[in-house]
Design a binder for these strands. Structure first.
Lengths: 350, 350
DNA sequence: CTGAAAGCGCTTACAG
DNA sequence: CTGAAAGCGCTTACAG
């Protein structure tokens, strides 16, 4: 007698997986009964505990695994919730993706995330693909054109919610960019005053002026200055795009004597800001303070980082799932407060 | 005449989406023909260009979108490639997820990623779920127990590949941890010698000694010391787990005069190392040099970071997709070289 | 060049 | 307490 490799006996080369028919045949019952036992509806069918146990046992024996394709097709509900997201490799979106999966599972839904790399065409493509897989819901995160996606979903009768960036055709959950930016600005100004004894305006760097979130943050930035009676310069707002290189380039062209305090609009921009900073003379570097709208654990530990505004992912997603469950398709924007996170206490001083 | 909201006319409340039957009826042809035109097999059926055009047009008119559930069920191939991955919010795994999606699409496959948070039970759960959705392939990334997952897949007749952490029952693609660690160790030692004029052993911090990758890195670490004739101390290897807090705690207990050079085993560990560092007196901080096995753009800009070993995601995934296409289910481990990335030129000096 | 028919693996209303 | 039957929306071999 030879010992076969574990699992091999079930792995008949060309075999398909076992179905409810196979289980039914062995147990000596009907596929209907097997189906209802396996999907949990058997109690209301008043199937005997004994039969149910036999079926469950045999299903296990045969390594039965329900074919979701068939199940979804028949039910006409997939219980899949799709998400499109711009990136994974960023703490904010990474946290959104992770939290989204966890919460989807808690709600009995199967999450499918697609990363669209901030490419508008890919966003549409991805949304269409997810609709083709018949998602029951779609979360459009940070999409450049949320309304086009909303339209696609509406035509398909699929509920959609915008996250992070608002749209007009579906409900949206976003951060309170205005208050977050106002608070962050105020903290950076205070720190500059404390460390340098003077009140000069900060420079806002990064983002696109046309972008909803950046616009709201610029408002908060302006108002925080106004509250302290600090007058902005013409060059105080540099919405030069998100790319790190853009920030480096922009900063290099500005008057350095006016760059003592920086409001950095995202961690991606901060990568460029930090590179620029370390390439300056140490005597200058010691005189700079900055903060960033967006959180990253290492960025928080960079010297002279005053603090970061962290978008509060859990309440954002809680709001999303709450809306998913509501029947009315109200649009409108739901804002979630940001959390302020101080930077490392580590300062470069002259 | 009232103007209806865009898209509304198609959004008949309770309507299902249009099917090939609807398209066939309008065009006056059969569902078979519509199906083959829509899925691209019509050329070999020698359907007239004219009919095909009509069908395509009408499908567009009706906002037709193929029901993948039905299509997959019938074809008995899903063209889905699943991936389980420990985390998203980390540059390495984030890059893997993004690159995986891009390459899957290039190969005509639909990627579905599930994040398993390093939880062995969740890994099994997730693998079973993906198998229930009838993925054609599964990539098991950084799984704590790759062989259990391989067994599940083998029983289901699904091809599986291990990524980042090797297993024995399926082919594996991993980083060359030994060479990467040896090189990184050597660079940190050189920098310490250059800056301090002495050759003392480094301290290896983080990871689990039983973990395959950590073991390989420890080997490289040891050999690099040996090559330079530097004798390790009893306390030189501190595989205290990955958690940041563990590293902080461990470092706090060690003799500080021996902690001038650190080999940090992952960015998650580095978070703790950096916190510990900044909490020390500045006079000590200036005398520390460290490097990290893992890359992160902000961590790279931390002062006194000598450099980072970056795992080379693109060739790793290229190897994965190459293996996916091979018919033979050979196991074995395929190693990919790491890239060395210098830290910022920024040093704290006394 | 095109259509009728069978069937992928389920679920569920219906009938006992 | 349980089963036969219809049907979800496709695809494809077969027949013309």
């Amino acid at each position: 007698m030879s010992i076969s490799r574990s699992g091999t006996q079930k792995n008949r080369q060309n075999s398909k997986r076992t179905t409810i028919y196979d289980v039914a045949t062995v147990v000596g019952t009907s596929p209907s009964t097997v189906s209802s036992v396996l999907n949990g509806t058997w109690k209301k069918r008043r199937i005997s505990q004994k039969l149910a146990d036999q079926i469950l046992l045999e299903a296990q024996n045969q390594d039965y695994s329900v074919n979701m394709q068939a199940s979804m097709l028949r039910r006409e509900r997939s219980r899949i919730v799709g998400m499109i997201i711009p990136k994974y490799d960023n703490r904010y979106f990474g946290a959104i993706a992770e939290q989204f999966e966890t919460m989807a599972r808690q709600h009995g839904l199967f999450p499918v995330i697609t990363c669209t790399r901030r490419d508008p065409e890919l966003e549409i493509e991805a949304a269409k693909a997810l609709l083709s897989y018949r998602v029951d819901y779609l979360i459009a995160t940070g999409s450049t054109d949320p309304d086009s996606i909303s339209r696609l979903c509406q035509d398909a009768g699929v509920r959609v919610i915008n996250l992070d960036l608002p749209g007009t055709l579906a409900p949206s959950v976003i951060s309170d960019n205005y208050q977050g930016a106002r608070h962050l600005t105020s903290v950076i100004l205070d720190q500059c005053f404390k460390d340098f004894g003077r009140s000069e305006p900060l420079t806002f760097i990064g983002g696109r002026g046309t972008d909803h979130n950046t616009a709201a943050r610029v408002s908060g930035f302006i108002d925080a200055h106004q509250e302290k009676g600090i007058v902005l310069r013409e060059t105080s707002i540099q919405t030069c795009g998100y790319a790190a290189e853009k920030a480096e380039h922009t900063l290099a062209l500005l008057d350095k004597t006016q760059l003592k305090g920086l409001f950095v609009n995202s961690t991606i921009t901060l990568e460029g800001v930090a590179r620029w900073l370390w390439n300056n003379e140490p005597s200058f570097v010691t005189q700079v303070r900055y903060g960033c709208f967006d959180w990253d654990p290492f960025a928080a530990q960079l010297p002279n980082n005053v603090g970061m505004a962290q978008q509060d992912v859990i309440p954002m997603l809680e709001a999303v799932f709450e809306m998913l469950e509501q029947t009315s398709v109200t649009s409108g924007v739901h804002q979630i407060s940001c959390v302020f996170r101080p930077g490392a206490a580590f300062r470069l001083e002259s």
